[in-house]
C-alpha cells in the first residue's frame, strides 16, 4: 500500500493529467451527431495508435533476440494501427466532403 501511495505522489502530475484528459475527452465527444459516430470511433482508434511510441522506445533498447522479435512485431502492429486507422478515417470522411 505504502509503495502505491509513493508511486502516486511521485507521478502526481500524471494523475492530474489523467483526470483532466478524462474531462476533455468527455467534453469533446459530448454533442457529436450520430452521423459522425463511425468516423469518430475510427479517428479515436487511430489516435490510440500513439502506443507505437512505446514500442519504438522498447525496440530501441532491446538487446536479446526474443525482445528484438517481440519489439519488431510490436512496431509493425503499432504502425498498422496508426496508418490503417488514419487512412480508413480519411476515406470515410472523404465521402462526407463530396456533398456540394
Amino acid at each position: 500500500m505504502e509503495t502505491i501511495l509513493e508511486f502516486i505522489s511521485k507521478h502526481i502530475e500524471m494523475f492530474y493529467l489523467i483526470i483532466l484528459m478524462i474531462f476533455v475527452g468527455i467534453e469533446l465527444i459530448g454533442h457529436v451527431p450520430s452521423v459522425l459516430h463511425t468516423p469518430l470511433m475510427s479517428g479515436a482508434n487511430a489516435i490510440h495508435g500513439v502506443v507505437i511510441i512505446g514500442s519504438i522506445i522498447v525496440m530501441g533498447q532491446a538487446h536479446e533476440i526474443i525482445s528484438l522479435i517481440l519489439g519488431f512485431i510490436a512496431v509493425i502492429m503499432g504502425t498498422l494501427n496508426v496508418v490503417g486507422g488514419f487512412v480508413v478515417t480519411d476515406r470515410m470522411l472523404e465521402m462526407f466532403k463530396k456533398k456540394k
Binding site: M21, I22, G25, L28, N45, H48, V50, I53, G54
Partner: peptide, 13 residues
Amino acid sequence: VMLIGGILVGSAG
C-alpha cells in the same frame, strides 16, 4: 503524449 493520447481515447471512447 502516450498518456494524453491514450486517456483521451479511453474517456472519449
